[in-house]
Design a protein around this nucleic acid. Structure first.
Lengths: 153, 153
DNA sequence: GCTTGACCTCAAGTTGACTTGAAGTCGTAG
DNA sequence: CTACGACTTCAAGTCAACTTGAGGTCAAGC
């Protein structure tokens, strides 16, 4: 029996069962059956969950992720869209790299306010040009919160 | 008069006035005075807004951004924290790079479902290991939505 | 000097992504 | 064969980050 119980999936992926149910509800993943009441998933779900985590950290909404990597694994989108998203991602990566550099800079720079530091200003100003990927609502990487704090009703 | 009217800031930054008011309310930026009723901002606010956009695209919450680059520009955090965040950002950047590669791959790969493609699987599997930076609730980069769609009540 | 447009305040509404709670159902250990 | 724990459903709640709406104010243009 190569099916994974929802509890197993939760444990192995770090994604709580409530979230797995929610993902199934919105069509992001799908279960293959039940054992009693319990959902059983195929092993590929773990890969999908990695993908979802990655997509979320890139700022994609669950809807966008579903469009790109629907529960059946077949893309809904024209190929050109993938290239466009990859390009957007490239910009975002550049922005994050700048931010990382800026962060390292402020960690070491003695200026009292980094807004006054010319080096810092230059860093940010250069990055200002275009870097919004996609997505909507809250904080980008909601992921880790209870995953690691063990909170899970 | 080198002060910028809220409307000017909105126009130059792409951030709607309602959002600017909100940011001021939560202490992320601050206005220097009023002209009549209208908030006037110093020119540095544009830099701060770039920084905020960058931080959001990295998945930081507004609260975290405020902690790192408070409205006065002076950091609340110990320097070590900045290094830690920079390190987390490095991981996130690696994840996004993987995702970008995966996206480019699926754009060109003939396999009907990318979950079946060994190249794709390898890409994602390698990335699965650790890449959650910080933050909490919703979607990672809520940024771009109305910024560019011109929706602004 | 009145109109107008863009701002103002404040409260309430929205959206996405989940979580929580109540009440119920199974499969397994004892 | 009864308990128990981990799941089940469904509705409602939460949280961040904004947006919207109602009702008001001001400075500039005609």
């Amino acid at each position: 029996m190569k099916f994974l119980d929802i509890g197993t999936v939760a444990e192995q992926s770090g994604v709580p069962p409530s979230t797995l149910r929610y993902y199934e509800e919105i069509g992001l993943i799908s279960s293959l059956g039940r054992h009693g009441l319990r959902r059983q998933f195929g092993p590929e779900v773990l890969l999908q969950l990695s993908l979802i985590a990655l997509g979320k950290s890139a700022g994609f909404s669950l809807g966008e992720i579903a469009g790109m990597f629907g529960s059946d694994g077949a893309p809904d989108l024209p190929r050109a869209d993938f290239h466009a998203r990859a390009d957007a991602l490239d910009l975002q990566i550049r922005g994050l790299t700048t931010l990382r550099n800026a962060l390292r800079h402020v960690a070491d720079c003695p200026a009292p306010s980094h807004l006054e530091c010319p080096t810092f200003r230059r860093l940010i100003r250069l990055a200002g040009r275009r870097s919004r990927p996609a997505g909507r609502s809250g904080a980008p990487t909601p992921v880790a919160r209870d995953q690691r704090t063990g909170k899970q009703g």
